[in-house]
């Protein structure tokens, strides 16, 4: 069976629900990164959807929607406040898929990236990106100070992986179609604060960032060999309701 067929069957089992939990998690992450995989998931969802027609509807209790609205109200209120980790969730919808132009090696671990504004309107030149291993756990925090073009990256739950390096990438239309390496994180999971110095603040504002897991010392090809999700940096104070 070819790799293509195998992936198709993996996706089919994912949609059916029988894919084992670890493969399921990986595919859940992968479909966020790879529009082609996501499209195939949707195709399988369409193929099998008819089975759900046999299921009788169940009227939800009146309190359920009230609770959903309460959470939305809460999120909306929080999004106008600084220092707001909850907007990681609300900002997730603002993620765009980073369409790496290179072929992706599937073995590399996934590191997902969300970008959110963490600063109040009084500090409009500072941005924070949260890099997530999965939907829940922040892996890295990246702070970008546009004025001084300084970056600060620190691991949250990410841990050094033996024989692997984390690599930070930047992508912008002005830089061409491919992501450019910002740098490879050192043993202490640190990166030179001035690594963004060469980039114009306006470019940084529009740019997207990603982290991939690479062989020691960084990608051998000059392009990410592992997939990543990216998000744009958002001007401070705009809040999550500010669409792309």
């Amino acid at each position: 069976m070819s790799e293509h067929d195998d992936l198709d069957m993996q996706i089919a089992e994912f949609v059916l629900g029988t894919l084992p939990a670890d493969e399921r998690r990986a595919l859940n992450a992968r479909r966020l990164l790879d529009p082609a995989v996501d499209a195939r998931v949707q195709q399988w969802e369409e193929r099998l959807a008819g089975m759900a027609d046999d299921v009788a509807p169940v009227q939800p209790g009146p309190e359920l929607f009230a609770e959903i609205e309460r959470v939305l109200d809460q999120q909306a209120a929080q999004s106008t406040q600084p220092d707001n980790t909850a907007s990681v969730v609300t900002l997730r919808r603002q993620l765009n898929l980073w369409r790496w132009s290179t072929a992706l090696a599937s073995a590399a671990a996934l590191v997902l990236v969300a970008v959110l504004t963490l600063q109040p309107a009084s500090a409009p030149e500072s941005f924070v990106a949260v890099f997530q291993h999965d939907d829940q756990q922040p892996a890295f925090l990246l702070t970008v100070d546009l004025q001084n073009r300084q970056l600060n990256i620190r691991p949250v739950t990410a841990e050094p992986q033996p024989g692997k390096s984390y690599q930070l990438w930047i992508k912008s239309d002005e830089l061409g179609p491919n992501p450019q390496s910002v740098g490879v994180l050192g043993d202490q999971m640190q990166l030179d604060k001035g690594a963004l110095k060469q980039y114009d603040p306006a470019l940084l504002r529009e740019a997207t960032f990603g982290i991939s897991v690479e062989p020691p010392g960084g990608s051998p090809t000059g392009q990410p060999t592992g997939p990543a999700i990216h998000g744009y940096l958002y001007p401070a104070g705009d809040g999550p309701s500010h669409g792309i």
């Binding site: 949609v15 949707q42 369409e46 959807a49 959903i68 939305l72 969730v89």
Partner: peptide, 27 residues
């Protein structure tokens, strides 16, 4: 509850050309 919060967040990603709306929601 979580599903509808996700719907709220991801509605902009819905593509009527790729999925029927009910299938998208049920999925």
């Amino acid at each position: 509850q979580e599903a509808y919060l996700k719907v709220w967040q991801r509605a902009s990603l819905f593509d009527a050309g790729k999925a029927s709306p009910i299938t998208w929601l049920v999925s």
